[in-house]
Amino acid sequence: MRFERREHRPIALVIATPLIAIAAALVLAGILIAIVGAPVLEAYWLILKSAFGSRLSATETLTRATPLILTGLAAAVAFRARLWNIGAEGQLYLGAITVAWASSQLLGDLPGIVQIPLLLFLGALAGMILLLVPLWMRLRFTVDEVVTTLLLNFVAVLFVSMLIDTVLKDPMAFGWPQSQPVADAAMLPKLLARSRLHLGLGIAVALAFVLAFVQSRTVFGMQSRAAGLNPEGAVFAGVPLGRTLVIVACISGGLAGLAGAVEVMGVQGYVTTELSPGFGYSGIVVAMLANLNPLGVVLAALFTATMFVGADGMSRSLGIPSYIADVIVALSLLTMLVAVFFTQYRIRR
């Protein structure tokens, strides 16, 4: 048995790939649910119902999808250029704490219309800087950025933990380590009354469209793809490799920093070390499920958020640990990898 590269990739197959992958992940996770003796179909039905069954739960799922779209885009942009940014989690935290610091110490008195864009920019800038360090190490010392970005995640979270324990600690929080809140004017407007759904979703979706355009219609989009597909060839064809990677890193780190900023300004108003339940890492899965397509990221983030929000509700009624959501999401990454492989290759005997 061996694998043979397909000459043509049927477009229907490419579109169906994520769906096949998700179905396969659900079957595999279903086995884990069945082993416990719980009804599999009912569990999945409850996940759907808990994620979309009511106005509250549906808005909650969309709220959860918001940072996932941004971290998913961060991973998709970087991976396309073969810049392995696994540091979205740390960049998210740095963006979040920057916003909390800037609004509570510096810009709090400015009106929202000025303050909000300024804060979003600062949050993105913080994420950019955190990714430029590993990129510089790659270009200067040929250090693989996977390990450095992963390690910086821990440094960033500890840094945030230190700040909210000391200089940025909220004295009104009954001793809990949490940052001082951002000013009221810095909170993003709600998209729907009586819900947590905020403008961040609009920003995230709009950015997905912008990126889709940039990647398919601009010179930079083509250069970043070339840098990923064949770096030597790209250089030979006149692509400024270093500069392209720096811009890619700025976009990717910026998006991840923005995810943190938006989460603080849209939902909580302050930073704790529990701000992100792994949004940065889930973003990798989101990007892969979307086949690195920016518009696909929106859908993949919605799927991932559905699993996380739904599993919480399902867990309460069936007693299956809500970690099943993490298992499903992780499995869908693995099944997606295999599914993509079979759109490129076919088995020959």
Binding site: V146, D326, V329, L333
Partner: peptide, 29 residues
């Protein structure tokens, strides 16, 4: 994933990490 199918070692490895750790928490819980 990486030898037979020849997939990206970065992404496969991260996938294995995400799966193995979430599976650990699930079983433990």
């Amino acid at each position: 994933l990486t030898v037979t199918l020849g997939l990206s070692q970065h992404v496969s490895g991260l996938g294995v990490t995400l799966f193995a750790s979430s599976f650990s928490y699930y079983v433990f819980r």
